[in-house]
């Protein structure tokens, strides 16, 4: 099974890549290239990469730090990154902080007291 998976993935990935290149060339030749459904690559890599780094840091901070504290920090940081310009005011940040506080305490209470999950 492992050998079958490796060989098949290599073959199918190559076929898929060739297929993509052919389609892209075909679309470029006929001038039918469509607008991508997601934001520019640079933005995806910067913001997406940033969020994934924060998520990894959040997961790795679980063991040494109290759950509510790191959840609050993670929630507010990600929310601040994603907030649209219209929300980037004192009031907007206050709403983010308050929501983060209530959410982190609420999740901690639900999981530790009701669901008996051992969170710090």
């Amino acid at each position: 099974m492992p050998q079958f998976v490796v060989v098949t993935v290599i073959v199918l990935a190559s076929l898929s890549a060739i297929n993509d290149v052919l389609r892209w060339r075909g679309a470029r030749r006929t001038g039918r290239a469509t607008e991508p459904a997601i934001a520019p690559v640079r933005q995806v890599l910067l913001v997406g990469g940033g969020i994934l780094v924060l998520l990894a840091a959040y997961v790795f901070a679980w063991r040494p730090l109290p759950f509510s504290l790191i959840t609050f920090v993670f929630f507010t940081s990600v929310s601040a990154i994603l907030a649209p310009p219209s929300v980037r005011t004192f009031r907007g940040y206050a709403v983010i902080a308050l929501t983060g506080l209530l959410f982190s305490i609420g999740v901690w209470l639900l999981f530790t007291l009701v669901l008996k999950v051992p969170l710090r």
Binding site: S79, P84, F103
Partner: peptide, 25 residues
């Protein structure tokens, strides 16, 4: 719920939900 508040909440629930399945980091 605005996207900037919903997304971090769902990220946290995904992490805590996974952990709570067998309390495995």
């Amino acid at each position: 719920v605005p996207k900037h508040l919903l997304a971090p909440a769902l990220f946290v629930l995904a992490v805590v939900g996974t952990y709570s399945l067998s309390n495995s980091w």
